[in-house]
């Protein structure tokens, strides 16, 4: 008897991505470059976050044609984004056969109160989080993988660092609490008690936790691995750089060998101009994607 869509099958898919780099791509050609460079998966999008930010307006799920072309171009898994709360976009992506759905703050939210009930889907979901409470709420709704939100499309790693440090420090705190303190902590974090208890017992999230949102260089990727990320998403960083092939390859190797500083120094030579970065304080609060999600 085959059972599909079990927690083990959905979370296991993310386990297989560990130590790898997931890259944003907008067409089949970029997807092939990413696969060639050693990406473990690609995220098929209509525009990378930096262009979404520049274009303004409502950002939605990508054209199914683009997603299909990317799926046909590569043998690695293909992910795609649905708007927060837009369970119909998610159902369409599942019907197309994408391997993972990102319920993503990079797109304009479709619901300002509720997220998708992800436990009802056969396809697994990844969701963004800034802290432990947010991560456990998403896992409670059925997310099989978590990533930091960071601040997408900025090429500025500071927010991803903030979110990863916050999560790791909260996990350590919960691990060291006595059991009778956990219910009040669950209330304060807005986290499901049963999941918080698991974090207390195991000292880690029940699912894989990647870094995302502002990673632009090999050193950024290695930094996030040192801070406890299981792997990294690189959005605008690769195809907004001067030399995407070289950049993609260097980021993949820096993620694998994040402890080998001499090697990362070597990989970082002559990479050309990285994407232009944005300072977070120059972005108006209404334009900060990380505030989306509840």
């Amino acid at each position: 008897m085959r059972q599909t869509g079990t927690d083990r099958v959905k979370r296991g898919m993310a386990e297989m991505q560990k130590g790898g780099v997931i890259m944003d791509v907008v067409n089949a050609e970029q997807a092939k470059i990413a696969e060639q460079a050693g990406a473990v998966a690609v995220m098929a999008l209509e525009r990378v976050p930096a262009d979404i930010r520049a274009a303004g307006g409502v950002a939605r799920m990508a054209d199914p044609r683009v997603i299909e072309e990317v799926m046909n171009a590569v043998s690695i898994p293909v992910m795609a984004k649905a708007r927060i709360g837009h369970f119909v976009e998610a159902r369409l992506l599942e019907a197309l056969g994408v391997d993972y759905i990102d319920e993503s703050e990079v797109l304009t939210p479709a619901d300002e109160v509720f997220h998708i009930d992800k436990s009802q889907f056969t396809v697994p979901f990844v969701c963004g989080a800034r802290n432990l409470g947010e991560a456990l709420r998403r896992i409670g709704e059925g997310a099989s993988m978590i990533r930091t939100k960071g601040e997408p499309g900025t090429g500025n790693v500071v927010e991803a660092v903030r979110h990863m440090r916050m999560m790791q420090s909260q996990i350590r705190k919960v691990q060291n609490m006595s059991r009778d303190e956990l219910m009040t902590e669950a209330k304060e974090l807005g986290a499901p008690y049963e999941l918080l208890l698991q974090v207390h017992e195991t000292g880690k999230l029940p699912v894989v936790n990647f870094a995302a949102g502002g990673i632009a260089t090999p050193a950024d990727a290695a930094l996030m691995m040192h801070l406890g990320a299981d792997g990294v998403f690189v959005g605008s960083g690769i195809f907004k750089s001067e030399n995407p092939e070289k950049y993609a390859r260097a980021i993949v190797q820096a993620t694998t060998h994040y402890e080998d500083f001499a090697l990362i120094a070597e990989l970082s030579k002559d990479l050309g101009t990285p994407m232009t970065g944005l300072e977070i304080s120059k972005i108006s609060p209404a334009d900060r994607m990380q505030e989306r999600g509840w």
Partner: peptide
């Protein structure tokens, strides 16, 4: 693809 992934005894 992933949606066809499964477990079995």
């Amino acid at each position: 693809r992933q949606r066809e992934s499964f477990e079995a005894a």
